[in-house]
Design a binder for these strands. Structure first.
Lengths: 336, 336
DNA sequence: CTTAACTATAAAAGCGATTGCGAAAAGAAA
DNA sequence: TTTCTTTTCGCAATCGCTTTTATAGTTAAG
């Protein structure tokens, strides 16, 4: 493993000159530059990232914390982040939060000790206050932190968020507009703001047309396929004679599909279903799932752009607030 | 940001002692140890990863290169890797290969410059020789490399692989055993050994029962949902009067389902389908997809274990060769 | 022809840890 | 007490780079 000294010796210059050639931090005579480059190539020299980081205090890494990398939702987000981080010549350090507050905190500390230049997180269980607290007391190095899927007023500039309430409203309104009356809701974990907002949108949709909000039509899920199955099962056992369900994410909708089919209930003839997220798989379900689209790739990209912006102190405009969009497919019928 | 010197001053010891307390590399008097720990806590000291890496030559990071983080297949693999890497107190640096040889090479160089302690890759387009070449000439730091989904004799000890030929055979045999005769195959990209092996298994299955292998029953896909759609479409246009299809991965099977449904062809009444991989979604498709299971999580974990083994020179036994398993669900009918 | 102003490069300091070596302190043996 | 071990810890070198400062050598200005 050759070092900058080996290169400098071989090219008959000082280490500083090699550094300047490689980083372009100062003008270097064309002839010497060429000699240096030749030496670099000949010795197959790769700068030592540790040594460089030690003096520049930059690693070129961006820390990412999400719930579970294997979930389609989260990995799509990461894909968006990667798109722009890779283009910027930086790399990604990922860690999972596993939907537990202690794990998220641990991941935060863990990642921050690896000296990333910035951190992008989708924290699902930590409260706003806990996050602010961490930033104040534990973020000793003052690493810029970008939050996805959350809006904290104090950190408004570093939040990427979606109007979940509007999304819930849109879903409900669509079901109402297509003639549904008895609309249930499988919500996400209610300790998540996302879930509460979608539920609130559902409620607003109902009340707007004079339908009373009824708790027995709402059941809490955990955003996973399995929990979607369980929630659907429990809902059926309530014998509510439903004609539609707004499911708070597509993964749970997949589980709900499964249970309904087993029960011999037809979608959408007997019950209409609308999901949330618009995962890749949703259009391939049978029937194709109507849903509320959340632009995950774009949101990941935006998060990365915000991180880079904070890093370079540039004054770039980034869209940080996203709007959900109704995607109509085949899982919602029109009733008269 | 406090350094080891600040801590040592506060605790009235030398930096070496602080280091020894924190790393447990030498015995330290209980009283002094406590003083140091107190100082660390009081100053909220976090060791500088750069400085540490510079002398130990270890980053605690494991580089991972996969095709596309957002694909369910790859992110499941990463999940497996993360399970054991996180437990080992190390972190993951991920980069995408984007299924292009130049990109994979770039990712390899990129990742290796970040000084990971080991690299785990699933290289899909680089040839065995190109990989060997890279290892010999570019892997200047001699970073251990673990290969997933590939078997290179020269690197046998660092390969995690599945018997794809057997998988293809199992799928085909199952279709034959359930009374199918006209079996098509949507293969993966044939420049991948995985794809060729599965195709070979398909061929062996057919020939074993005296059926001739017919090229017109085989069509090449790209392992994506969209390419599955295209392949299925093209296959239908050949008017082969098929009764079954072995699709080389579940993602393409999802695409095939979609096209068949659009064409009004019933699964499995008119055509049986069997996939490969057993992604989470497969059991939720309608009808649930019969498939050949590939234990992705376990394979990711094995890869990480091999990486750690190489790193610590330990003599741990790790299962590196995996066997595919037939999973029967509802997409294959029994015909008489 | 002298002096000022650049340009191109070298020398050296410093980033913040780890670690081999040696010495002081403490305890055991004589 | 004196001497020998053992334990505990400090000193100083080192890792490989960047960056500030200084110094030749050139060119331009007066």
């Amino acid at each position: 493993m050759s070092s900058i000294k080996d290169v400098s010796r071989y090219a008959n210059v000082s280490p500083s000159t090699v550094s300047r050639v490689l980083n372009g931090t100062a003008p270097v005579n064309a002839a010497t530059k060429e000699r240096v480059l030749k030496a670099v190539a000949h010795l197959n020299y790769k700068p030592n990232a540790f040594a460089r980081g030690l003096v520049t205090n930059r690693s070129g890494g961006i820390g990412v914390i999400i719930n579970e990398i294997s979930s389609s939702f989260h990995s799509t987000l990461v894909q968006g982040i990667e798109n722009v981080i890779e283009a910027a010549g930086m790399h990604l350090i990922v860690s999972s939060g596993h939907a537990k507050a202690t794990r998220e905190l641990k991941a935060l500390n863990f990642i921050s000790q690896r000296r990333p230049d910035a951190i992008i997180v989708r924290l699902e269980t930590l409260s706003d206050d806990e996050i602010l607290d961490w930033l104040e007391h534990e973020n000793v190095q003052n690493i810029p932190v970008v939050l996805i899927g959350r809006f904290i007023p104090e950190l408004a500039d570093s939040c990427i968020h979606l109007d979940n309430e509007l999304g819930g409203y849109l879903a409900t309104q669509h079901l109402l507009a297509t003639g549904h009356q008895k609309i249930a809701h499988i919500s996400g974990p209610l300790l998540l703001k996302d879930s509460r907002d979608r539920l609130q949108g559902y409620r607003r949709g109902l009340e707007e047309v004079g339908l009373a909000y009824d708790e027995s039509y709402v059941i809490e899920g955990q955003f996973t396929e399995t929990s979607g199955q369980q929630a659907m099962q429990a809902l059926l056992e309530r014998n509510l004679n439903l004609d539609a369900i707004f499911v708070a994410n597509d993964q749970m909708a997949v589980g709900a599909f499964h249970i309904l089919r087993q029960a011999g209930i037809r979608i959408p003839e007997d019950i209409s279903i609308i999901g949330f997220d618009d995962l890749l798989i949703s259009r391939y379900l049978y029937p194709a799932l109507s849903t509320i689209r959340q632009p995950l790739i774009a949101m990941g990209e935006a998060a990365a752009q915000v991180a880079l912006r904070e890093l370079h102190q540039k004054d770039i405009k980034v869209e940080q607030s996203f709007t959900p969009e109704l995607i109509q497919r085949q899982s919602v019928a029109t009733r008269h």
